[in-house]
Design a protein around this nucleic acid. Structure first.
Lengths: 363, 363
DNA sequence: AGCACCACCTAAACCGGTTTAGGTGAGCTT
DNA sequence: AAGCTCACCTAAACCGGTTTAGGTGGTGCT
């Protein structure tokens, strides 16, 4: 029963409610021993300031919002959010902030959602996720005067700070790993080019090929869903010269692609090497286990939360260093088949079955 | 800029602020035309009531909480929450409620989290998830006077209403499906028995075996993680008489189990049939695609939200019907191998087999 | 005409904090 | 001894709504 108010504390401590407020927020003007007494009384009777009342008087919501603009079914398969939210929470809660969640269909471009949050004064700032290349949201929020932090690669418009793990090192790592295994014909299944993280991973991929001195391989745009990953893989394998390795923009598409390849009788990694991105829990337990790129999503969430709170408090931004994405090499990648290595025009036909000599999962 | 207050509206409409409040909340005592004028003015100048102020004066937080008590990495692999949250949101937002999220490590048994939420007056009610068999939380919340709705199978203590999809029909469907395919030695990889949904799926499983007239098959307790699913599968396959089919308590464990079986050279479903539970997005795209149990999680979320709001408003509970879980037959289940059929002595009686008749995945 | 009644609206209290403007007394100047 | 400063504390305004207790004027009844 939070029937207790600051008045009860004031009365019990024999001071005015103003004094209690001062003591609680450790502001000057209260004698040390009085402060101690007030705090002790407050603790003894078990009083916690009402954040409702606080929010009203400080004209702050003491909450920040995370608006997720995706169709819920796509969402379900994304391992990103739960961990990310855990990271956010760990910072927010110790600062007395709450996290408000909103999931909206992404076809309404969620403008009304933000408007409502800010109109109703529910949040002091928001995290922006799943940004499109020409997304109206940053400008909208600037206009509304609501602080925001962009999650993901920087947008380049400089309106809001971006907090993200650079996609490039991970993708480059994957490409270099494949090149080292002898692959020279590497395909890519990308996320939507219209979305910033789809775009940036795509960029990272072509940059990495360039660095490796390889010709640009075939790249197919998908939408991060299993369905689209399978379809894209089908297209790549149907090419006159199918790639010997495929770099996927996320694990889900990679899994779907791997299954599709296997259903066609290809052996992974003997006939086709595959890399994912995310390092989902299941990745290590697939057959073969999936070589993928791992990022510390929890730390990412922590960083984003810190940044947003700084922005809200108009504090100077601190340097936030995120650990770079790291390639985790497992068993879905292997040396290119000798008969396919460096081939130019020869097409490789599918092999029926290659069961047997298969590297076992470590563990 | 939400600088606008109810006073601005009152002034512009030439009435008192009380009148504006009455008009807005459609309470009697305002002439129809006056009400219309007030609402028009409010809309014209673009005013939305501040939920901060509202929350303080109505002594309600106008928000509900979802405390997720799991290690974040386990969380990531669970497709449940995002969809569930989407369902919650769709009901909450239209009622002007916000959803507060909190992710806590589950080792602190999250008591402090709830306490804080209620002490600070941040929420009017909470959803309880991942309940343990002897969970202290329902009682704690009752003591704190904070309405709650249990997500999942009913706990039987009757303190709070439970909203959940009955696990039994899905599991029973899976078992019957396997029995129809000729399996008589069916294993189970369960969730933690200490958790209600682990427990209930386990119960459903043994109940289904009983119904089918089969002896209780081997059951191994796991923890819903991929890692544990693989380990449990290993144990089952290492039995003197390994089961010809395994029913898993979730997709993640089923996937890990399937991969493990394949890495041992087993063919799914020829040598081993496998069923999951959840119907995650990837399930349909595995090789072979996974036979699993699908529940309408979004609708579930909607139902839970409705129920909690009713509880908060102390309205009479309405009947909430959730569509039952449904078995989705795909390719990870098939007829038992003839040489293995009925080989166990413990079999009580066999049901006729329905070979070949497999519903194909739609798409 | 006088009165009760009702519909409509206003003024002010209230929710529980924060914050500002004062007030009080001790200690120090002059 | 009067005056000043300063540290400490109190009273009251304030945040922006809701809600209660009145107030006003018009209508119906006798």
């Amino acid at each position: 029963m939070s029937r207790l108010t600051i008045n009860d504390v004031a009365r019990a401590a024999g001071v005015s409610k103003g004094a209690v407020s001062f003591a609680l927020n450790s502001r000057p003007g209260v004698a040390p021993e009085t402060r101690a007494r007030i705090l002790r009384v407050a603790r003894d009777i078990g009083w916690t300031p009402s954040s409702r009342a606080r929010a009203l008087s400080v004209s702050r919501a003491l909450a920040v919002g995370l608006v997720i603009a995706r169709p819920p079914d796509t969402l379900g398969a994304d391992p990103f959010f739960p961990s990310f939210i855990a990271g956010l929470e760990s910072v927010l809660s110790e600062r007395g902030y709450a996290l408000l969640l909103q999931v909206v269909a992404n076809d309404d471009r969620e403008t009304p959602s933000y408007r409502r949050l800010v109109d109703e004064g529910r949040v002091d700032g928001v995290f922006l996720t799943d940004l499109f290349m020409d997304d109206p949201r940053p400008a909208l929020l600037a206009e509304l005067g609501l602080p925001a932090v962009v999650i993901g690669p920087a947008l380049g418009d400089g309106i809001w700070p971006a907090v993200g793990v650079d996609d490039a090192p991970g993708i480059i790592g994957a490409v270099e790993h494949l090149v080292a295994l002898g692959h020279s014909h590497i395909g890519h299944v990308a996320g939507p080019r219209g979305m910033v993280h789809g775009h940036s991973r795509q960029q990272a991929w072509s940059g990495a090929l360039l660095r490796a001195g390889l010709a640009p391989g075939p790249s197919i745009e998908a939408d991060f869903s299993a369905e689209s990953g399978a379809a894209a893989t089908r297209q790549l394998l149907d090419l006159a010269e199918p790639p010997t390795a495929i770099v996927y923009a996320n694990d889900l598409m990679a899994m779907a692609g791997m299954s599709l390849a296997q259903s066609r009788g290809l052996d992974v990694p003997r006939d086709l090497s595959i890399t994912g991105y995310d390092d989902t829990e299941i990745a290590a337990h697939l057959q073969p286990s999936l070589t993928t790129v791992s990022t510390d999503v929890i730390e990412w969430g922590r960083a984003a939360a810190k940044r947003l709170l700084e922005l809200i408090d108009t504090q100077p931004p601190t340097d936030i260093m995120l650990p770079p994405a790291q390639l985790v090499v497992r068993n879905s990648t292997g040396p290119v088949r000798a008969d396919l290595q460096g081939r130019t025009k020869t097409t490789h036909r599918r092999r029926q079955t290659t069961r047997g000599a298969r590297r076992m999962e470590k563990q």
